[in-house]
Amino acid sequence: MGELIRLEAGVEHTCWNSSRTKLAAGMSDGSVHVHEPLKGTNSDFSCSSRWKAHEVAVLKIVWGPSEYGDLIACCSKDGTMSVWEEIEDAAKQDVWQLCARFTDIKAPVLDLQFGHCASGLKLVAAGADGHLRVYEATDVLELKRWQLQAEFANAADVREKLERVSCTDASISWRPVADAIQQQVFVVGFHTNSPQHSIAKVWEFGETHQRWHLVAELSSPEHDYGRINHVSWAPNIGRPYELIAVSSSNSLSIWSMDIPSGPGHRSAVKLLGYFTDHQPGEVVQAEWDMCGMTLASAGADGVVRLWQSNLKGRWEEKGRVVGA
């Protein structure tokens, strides 16, 4: 247990790559810092690259699937997003190079996530207008050209109610890879001031009709789920159902969902656990371990709680990490 990396002041968001060997940090001055051990060694982490990705603060930063090299996407406070990759330049130096900058997006981007699907590399972005935009890289090697594959509203009437409804944050989580390939399914949740739109929803791409359709809504009338801060889809190493954790302004909820079975079929969802243990109740993030057995939730109270199901299937807190 110990300090792994010291980040400079002004850090807004951090993200680890899939093998946890590189950390990208989005900074308030619009730059991106990448930390990693010295190449080919087991040395301590240090900042290996830094560059100005945006003019204003980088709000979210994500890594792409490692099958496409070292790839980063980030969105900034001005609502734009950009994609960067590390390549060797003519001088035989590893440099981070801009692949694409998405400036013509109709609404500011709140969250973005890469998906490695059988059909290629996807990038889904959630906008402040409550819309989801799915981009597809047109070339498997050259990631400079992206085309908009689909654009759809998460809630049908957000656009009409835009005057009253405002989305200030969003979270997307793809169904994790199985057998090295990701299915075209993701869950998304918006942080809005409208309770009816604060529902995490699962979207799937139907190959037959070539469109995205709603598979499930993670809600039940018994509880108030508040504004969604984060959604996380659990890795599935053989469970006959899926697990999704939703962190919100007042609770952490754990849902089970039948495995999506194709277009026209709504998957049955079931609330497995609803917890308000984090004080004063706000849960900012929840992440699953590598086999989806343990969930770690981070609260605004500065405490990380560890959750597991007992042998009867009841989810309970089994440990916590407290900062001092």
């Binding site: 968001h13 929840a286 500065g302 089994k318």
Partner: peptide, 25 residues
């Protein structure tokens, strides 16, 4: 409350924002 707890000495002022990520294992 569970008996198993880990204390991380970060030494930062106030209540810092937290982001979590699982490594391998």
């Amino acid at each position: 409350a569970p008996s198993s707890g880990y204390t991380v000495k970060h030494g930062m002022r106030g209540t810092p924002r937290i982001q979590i990520s699982w490594g391998t294992g």
